[in-house]
Every structure is written in C-alpha cells, then in structure tokens.
Design a protein around this nucleic acid. Structure first.
Lengths: 219, 219
DNA sequence: TCTTTTCCTGAAAGAAACCTTAAAATAACG
DNA sequence: CGTTATTTTAAGGTTTCTTTCAGGAAAAGA
C-alpha cells in the first residue's frame, strides 16, 4: 500500500511518515504543491493525503486537477480550517475525507485504512473498448479467463486506450516500488496478452513504441 | 452480527456505536451518503441504519439504490420528520422499519434485534440453481445433510451463481470482522463442499480463480 | 552493411496460492 | 458430565502463476 503525503511542514511530514511506515505503508513525501501534483498524477498511489495550505499550488488545486485528469485515487484533505463550508466544498470536488489540523496520527491512519479497505464494489464495473469487454468481477476478457496480474495490466490499457503507457508506469502501478532489470516482466506479459487478443479475434492490439512503451489501439 | 450505521452527526454516531457494541454487535460507521452506499452494497451487513438527511446522498437514495441492486439487508430509517406520509413512502421503497429522531438507543437496539430475528422466518425459502436445491429449513442440499457453516457458504454461492466471490467477502460475511480468520477456513470448506457436489452428482461445481476467489458454475 | 540496442517469445525454475486430510479444539446435545 | 458433531488448526502435497533465462528478431545507429 503506497501513500503520497503532500505537506510543507517538514517536521510534521517526517513524523507522520514514520508512523505510517510503522503501520506497513510505503510513504512518499512532497513538500510543495507542484511536486505533489506531479506525483499524484502518476496514479500509482492507493491514497493521497493533501495539506491545503501549500507553496506553489494549494491542496484544493491539486485535488481539482487530479479529478480533471480522471485520477480517482482516494484523497484525504488536511486543514486548520474546520469550517463546514470549506469542508463541503472539498467533498464536492471529490475528496473522500477531511481531517482538521491538528490531528492525531492514529486518526489519520484509521481514515486511510477505512478508505483503502472500502468495498471495491464501485470501480468493479466492466470496462469496454472497441470489441473488448473486461469483466473485472469475473476476471474475464471477452469470456476468456484471466489471471490476477493479467487483469491489472489489461485494466491499465483499457482505462487509457490509444494512449502511450510506459513501462515505468506499469512497473510502479502493478509491481510497486522501483523496478530493477524487471522490464522483462512486462514484455513477458505483453506477449501473453497479445496471444490472448489474437485468440479472441479482437480488432484491438498492443503496439510497441520503441524506447517509450506500449499503446492499446484498434486503428 | 454486523451493523452499518450511516450518520453525519459524529457525536451521535459514536454514542450509538458504543451502545450497540456493548450489546455485542459489530458496528461500522459511515458519515456521508456515498460512503454509506458503498458499504451497504457490499452486502455483508445484517442490518443497515440510515439517517435520512446526509451529505452527498440521502438515506432515501441509499435505500432505493440498495434495493435496485438487489441487496436485501434489513433497513431502518431515521429522521426528524415523523410525518406519516414520508414514513409510508419509505416503507414502500423497501425499508423495514422507521424511527423518529430523537430516539433512545435502547429503542434502536430493540428494533434492530427484532429485524435480525425476523429474517430467519422469512428468507427460509429454498434456493435453487441448475440441478441444485438448497433447503434452508432442513439444511440439506439435494437431500444431503449440511452443517450450519456449509449452509451459509453454499447460500452465498447460490445467491450469486456464475459470479466470482472473493475470500474477503466470504470471511466478512460468514466469519465477521475484518477477514481476521484464516484463508484456510474457506479452503477447507470449499474442499468439503466439492466432495458434496460430487456425491450429489451435480453438474455444478466450484471453480477457483487463483488470486481472486471462487465461482459456482455449471458451464 | 555491420553493430548495438531493444524487444519478443518459449520453456524451465521458482514461488505462491491452493487442496486435502487428519487430528485437535470447541461447541452442541442429551 | 460425557458423548457426538462441528469447526479450526496444522502440515504436506499439488497445481498454477510468476519470474527468470536464453536465444533470436526487429529497429536504430554507426
């Protein structure tokens, strides 16, 4: 479970990071809004915690841009302001929870856990692209049974078809942490997925953009 | 017995939770409508208590959506409005009981208990799928005697045949709490249920989707 | 063209998830 | 209170998925 914590108060950031890691989470820190946004958009986190008052770009802005870019990672907002209005406005913008500063780390941990553990009933809906139907509840692609990793990879492609997806992103999202000579994981799976697509007689295929990554296309 | 209580007034929610837990219930809280709906749809609760006035999504909406999705968990609605009209409209939408705010926790506890006790008289109807007949009054599958846990597990599968059911769900629904029980519980029972299906000469069988869960199928 | 880099693919090794059985613990019953 | 039935624990074996490896093919660069 990987968490992004965007916070400019270093001492606080470090303390919280320490506590979260003790709970078994992997934690990345960002100390300003721009850096935070960049990380958040990578879409590899299981939860993002945003302070609102930040240099360069506010937490609110980060949240807004994330949702614009269709990044659906659960978000918890932190702020000294506990006015109901602000709170509601954030929830409206797609924040999943809200915590007033100062807070107890235990409280934050509890909320993160609650968000992550939330039943996955909602994003489990089928994904379709062209003649492909990925049924995530049954782990099948056009009726063909898939393995867990295959589902994850195919999901990434079908969520952003006709878009280049680089290996780094796949490694980070599906294998977590930083890869090392592990590019072949992906090549191996791409190979198998291509076979699958052929077996299904789909018009869609995965093309490789040498040096950059792969792309699902049906053109 | 696990209960979901959807309520935005935190102080009230905590108080009620405390009292219900004293009665031996496990209680999950949700503080807004969306979260409440998501949790309710997971279909692992024995009873859902819905406040009507909620941020994001009203209790009424949650109830409606639950029934649309065929989630038949007993529901108690809470509201400051005690007008007969509203009451009737909710009961029409499939609520099982109605309680006006403010209420005494003891009153709520009593109603929850009443509701939870009731189902055993009602949903005792047989469930069938393909050549299988589960008789819940006698705890038999095609005449073969079952144990209590076997009935519960088989019920889950027969309620949603041809659908992947993951271990987490089974653990939460049958053993309660947060999947603290071992996966091996399930593996053990699946093994026994498979023997049973063979003995019965049923066409149906339980297939395992490695890393994801199990599925009852007859294809 | 020849060399280098990057990618593809099939097969084998390794790891993880799952199955099965039997015995121990617990609960239910008389 | 003893007996029986059910549930849980434990262990070893089995299967399947994932990773690794190695050799070859395609693209890019010299």
């Amino acid at each position: 479970m990987r968490i992004l914590y965007v916070e400019d108060a270093t001492f606080l950031a470090e303390a919280v990071k320490f506590n979260l890691e003790k709970q078994g989470f992997t934690v990345d820190l960002a100390s300003n809004g721009e850096e935070g946004l960049e990380n958040a958009l990578s879409d590899i986190y299981d939860c993002v915690v945003l302070d609102i008052m930040l240099p360069k770009l506010s937490g609110t802005d980060i949240l807004k841009r994330m949702r614009e870019k269709k990044v659906q990672t659960p978000v918890i907002m932190l702020s000294a302001l506990s006015e109901v209005e602000t709170k509601i406005s954030h929830l409206d913008h797609g924040a999943d929870d809200y915590l007033a500063k100062p807070f107890k780390t235990a409280e934050l941990v509890a909320r993160i856990k609650a968000l992550i553990r939330r039943p996955k009933n909602i994003d489990i809906s089928d994904i379709t692209y062209g003649d492909l139907v990925l049924d995530k509840t049954n782990a099948t692609l056009n009726g063909e049974q898939l393995t867990a990793k295959e589902v994850e990879i195919i999901t990434e492609f079908m969520k952003s078809p006709e878009t280049l997806i680089n290996k780094e992103h796949l490694l980070a999202k599906i294998w977590g942490e930083d890869g090392f000579g592990e590019d072949n994981y992906i090549e191996s799976y791409i190979s198998r997925i291509r076979k699958l697509l052929k077996k299904i007689h789909s018009k869609a295929r995965i093309v490789t953009i040498r040096g950059l990554g792969y792309k699902l296309t049906s053109k």
